[in-house]
Simulated scan of single mutants.
Amino acid sequence: MLHAKKLLIIAPILLAACATSYQPEGFTGGYSDMRMGSDLYRVSFEGNGYTDPDRAADLALLRAAELAMSNGASHFAVVDSASSSRQGAFTTPQTSSTTGTVNTYGSTATYNAQTTTYGGQTFIVSKPTAQNLVLLVRDPDEFDGPVYDAQTVAEGVKDRYGID
């Protein structure tokens, strides 16, 4: 019973900070980028099992906006994009507890036992990834196609997810 109580106390704490935060890619996910040409980048965001696919897509756009602004471009265009999900399984640890009683009568003893098992559940986890091939656009009037305003995207995504 003690293990079940611990799980009930710990579960809300874990759920409060579960979705992948906006950070460079690490153990729990995050963004990565690679320069493919002078103004061409591949930008990715990988979430964990608690990350919504829309959040992964938005945070990939945020990284593209930051790259544009840090490289002197006011806009960017998404040349190609892809999204996917990796699935994995997580199994909770299993523990068992046995309690019993012994009754004696003369030279005869009887034993009555009960075993209770906790854990051992398997959960399927889906981890979303959003990937964009991004072209930095310095003059949107000279670009033939739709472009994103980097400042507007950065402010909008940061406001939506409470990112400083």
Rank of each mutant, 00 (worst) to 15 (best):
A16S: 12
V43D: 08
G100W: 01
F27W: 09
R63L: 01
I13D: 05
P53K: 01
F90S: 13
C18A: 13
H75M: 03
A19P: 05
K6F: 02
L14M: 09
T104L: 02
R35I: 09
Q94K: 15
A113R: 07
C18M: 08
C18L: 06
G88D: 15
Q23D: 15
T99V: 06
G106A: 01
G26F: 01
F76V: 00
M36H: 09
G37S: 07
N112H: 06
A64V: 05
A89M: 15
V43E: 04
A77Y: 06
S84K: 10
L7H: 08
S84Y: 08
Q114P: 00
T99D: 02
P93E: 07
S97D: 05
Y105T: 13
P93M: 02
N103M: 08
F90W: 10
D80S: 14
F76C: 02
Q114D: 10
I13Q: 09
T28Q: 14
L61Q: 05
G106Q: 02
T98M: 11
S83V: 13
G49C: 04
S97V: 13
S21R: 08
A4Q: 08
P53T: 00
R86M: 10
D33C: 11
I10V: 14
R42T: 14
S97Q: 14
E46M: 10
Q87M: 12
S85W: 11
A113P: 08
Y111H: 03
G100E: 09
E25N: 07
N71T: 04
S74L: 05
T51F: 06
I13H: 06
T99N: 15
F45V: 10
G47M: 11
G29I: 04
S84I: 13
T98R: 14
D52N: 11
G88V: 12
A73R: 01
S107F: 06
P53M: 00
L61H: 07
R35N: 03
T28M: 12
G37L: 09
S70N: 13
V102N: 11
S70A: 15
S84L: 12
T110W: 02
M36W: 10
A57R: 12
A73M: 02
R63E: 01
D58T: 00
S107P: 07
T110I: 06
G106I: 01
T99W: 00
A11H: 04
A68C: 05
L8T: 13
L15N: 12
S81K: 14
N48I: 03
G49R: 07
V43N: 03
A64I: 02
Y50Q: 12
E66F: 01
P53N: 01
A4I: 04
G29F: 00
E46Y: 04
L7R: 09
S21H: 15
R63V: 04
V43P: 03
H75S: 14
A16T: 07
F27I: 15
A113E: 14
F45H: 01
T110L: 05
A60Q: 03
T28L: 11
P53I: 03
Y111C: 06
G47Y: 03
T98G: 11
F45A: 09
T108A: 13
L62A: 03
A16W: 01
L8K: 13
L8Q: 14
L62E: 00
A109I: 06
L8N: 14
L40S: 04
S85C: 08
K5T: 14
A57H: 08
T28K: 07
E66G: 13
I9W: 00
A17G: 15
F27C: 06
Y105G: 14
D52E: 07
T28W: 05
A64N: 00
S85Y: 12
T51E: 03
S83P: 00
D58M: 07
